[in-house]
Each structure stands twice: as structure tokens, then as C-alpha cells.
Nucleic acid binder design. Structure first.
Ligand code: FES
Ligand code: FES
Lengths: 143, 143
DNA sequence: ATTAAAATATGATAAAAGTCATATTTAGGA
DNA sequence: TCCTAAATATGACTTTTATCATATTTTAAT
């Protein structure tokens, strides 16, 4: 479904959503441990996310990563698209490329309802929404 | 969702379901082309499937692969499990391992209803069912 | 029996995904 | 201004997945 990298990215951004703010930056060392991802790996992913303005960062002493108010509105699909590319979630289950709902492949109907639904969830929900669920005890960490 | 190998395997078995029989064996050369998978690759997968009695085969002249009546009853999940292992479809979206419906991770509810449903389809439908859909014009090839 | 045609077993190579290492740049504090 | 702490850029290494190649075994036909 997601690549490993996307899972890591989501975990990292969610961690920042819950624990960081403009006035409380977190450095990569202190992100990697609680989300259980190798430091050098998550550093690279955060840099990529930063380039796409999905997370914010400042360098130097007391620098680190954080989510701005705007960052909190990031849709989950944006994170996945940046890391995995736009095709991964949409491609045919059997990788047939000229298939669609008019000419569905033999597995199309097994998965379509779910997939549509799932992708819509990713398109409609923000990081802020996920963080809120956690705060309300609707979903759980640790990551 | 599926690995490439699983997709190939499903395509190959489905092709056999539609075109082969005990009295009409098909050799690997004549499977690989219509399903659009490299010959050496699909050969290896068919051997693995054969070892697990998901397809049948005989060697020597006029040999080849085919599906016995029993093979036609193979559940789709069996193919996937043989090729991808049993965990791939079931693991948490964020790869958290101590998560369940009691303590769902932040993405759990996005995907669970659909995933359960999808896996059930794979557990309930056989290759024969897929082939029937194709024959009835409910779903389409080519692979 | 001999030969040829097929699957089978085994392993080598290539490409992609995941992981690690390090030199450079930026920003803050002494 | 100079030093230090942080992200950034770049690239090397490792593991997994995908792909290709080949020698062996089995079976059928002559
Ligand atoms: S999943 Fe194959 S046609 Fe839609
Ligand atoms: S998908 Fe993560 S807990 Fe179920």
C-alpha cells in the first residue's frame, strides 16, 4: 500500500504535529528515536518533505523541524505523493494499464470500493485531523 | 498491495484457467507472451506454484502447465500467500506491530473496513470464479 | 535405447528500495 | 568575529525484489 518511506514520513510528520510548534523545534535526533526510525533515514525524508514545504525547519543552534500552522493543514495524500509518487495508489491491481471502470480487469471490483474510499480519506484528512484523533483518544501511539 | 510477482502469478494462473486443461497443456513459452511477462520469470513462478500444487504440470514432449479440476478451486488468497507470504496484506498501514482494533493506529480506520472486505474477497473467490467473470463479459482481458 | 522436448533446480546479474556516512551550509550565541 | 549546533546535499553501501541464464531431470515418441 505505502512504501516503507511513506510510512516513516507519515509517522514523523504526525510526531511533529503533536509535539512541535514554531517555538518548539525538534531536531532529527529527537524525532528518530520516538518514532523508531533510523536517524539518517528519517533525516533524509524530512529534508525531502522540507523541500516540498510539508514540514518547516531552521538550521543552526536551537534549530530543528516543526510544523507551522499552514503545515498542519497538509493533506495526507500530499505526503504520500511526495514520497511514493502519484501512481502507486492508483495503478491497476494487476498492473494492466489500459483498464478502467468500463473495462475492469478481473480483480477490479474486488478492490475498487475500498481503494476509492481509502484514497478519498487521504485526500480529505489533514495531519491536524490525525493529531486530533490521537488527542481525543480515538487512535493511539506510540509510533 | 500485491508484489509484482503476485500479479504475474495471478495472471498466469488465470490464463491457464481460461486456456488450458488436462488434455491441453501449455508450455511456458506460450504463457509468457500473452500475459506479457518475461519467460524466465514466469517459469520460475510457475515452478513455485507447481510445488505448492496450485498449478499442475508434466515434463517432456507435449508437456506443459495446466489446471486440474482441483486447481480451478484454488482460492486467490492461496496464490498471494505462496508468493508474497501471509503478512503482506495484513500488516498495519504504519507497520506498528502491537496495534489492533482495540488500540488502532491513526490510520487504522481509514483502511480497515475496505481491507477486511478485500481480503475476504480473496479468501472466498477462486480462480474459477475469476475465469467465469471473464467468460461472462463481466471483466476483461488481455492480461 | 536414443533422442528431443519439456519442466525443474540452482544460481547469477540487474534494478530498486532501504540504510548509512560525511562534507557543506546556515544561524545563533559567546 | 568566531565557534558550535543544527539542517542540507551528496553519494556510498546494503538488502530485497525482479530478471535472466543454464545445467539437470523427466517423459514421450521414434
Ligand atoms: S484494478 Fe485492474 S482494472 Fe482496476
Ligand atoms: S492499520 Fe495500523 S493499527 Fe490497524
Amino acid at each position: 500500500m505505502f512504501s516503507n518511506s511513506s510510512k516513516y514520513a507519515i509517522k514523523a510528520v504526525l510526531y511533529l504535529a503533536i509535539h512541535s510548534s514554531e517555538s518548539k523545534k525538534i531536531r532529527v535526533k529527537n524525532i528518530s528515536e520516538p518514532i523508531n526510525v533510523p536517524q539518517a533515514y528519517i533525516a533524509k525524508l524530512l529534508q525531502e518533505l522540507s523541500r516540498h514545504r510539508i514540514v518547516s525547519s531552521t538550521r543552526g543552534p536551537n534549530g530543528g523541524f516543526f510544523l507551522s500552522d499552514a503545515n498542519m493543514k497538509t493533506l495526507l495524500i500530499e505526503i504520500v505523493n511526495v514520497i511514493d509518487g502519484e501512481d502507486r495508489l492508483n495503478s491497476c491491481l494487476l498492473s494492466l494499464h489500459n483498464c478502467n471502470s468500463e473495462k475492469p480487469c478481473p480483480l477490479h471490483d474486488f478492490a475498487r470500493p475500498f481503494r476509492t474510499n481509502f484514497i478519498e480519506s487521504l485526500e480529505q484528512n489533514t495531519i491536524e485531523d490525525l493529531a486530533r484523533d490521537v488527542k481525543r483518544g480515538k487512535s493511539f501511539l506510540p509510533l
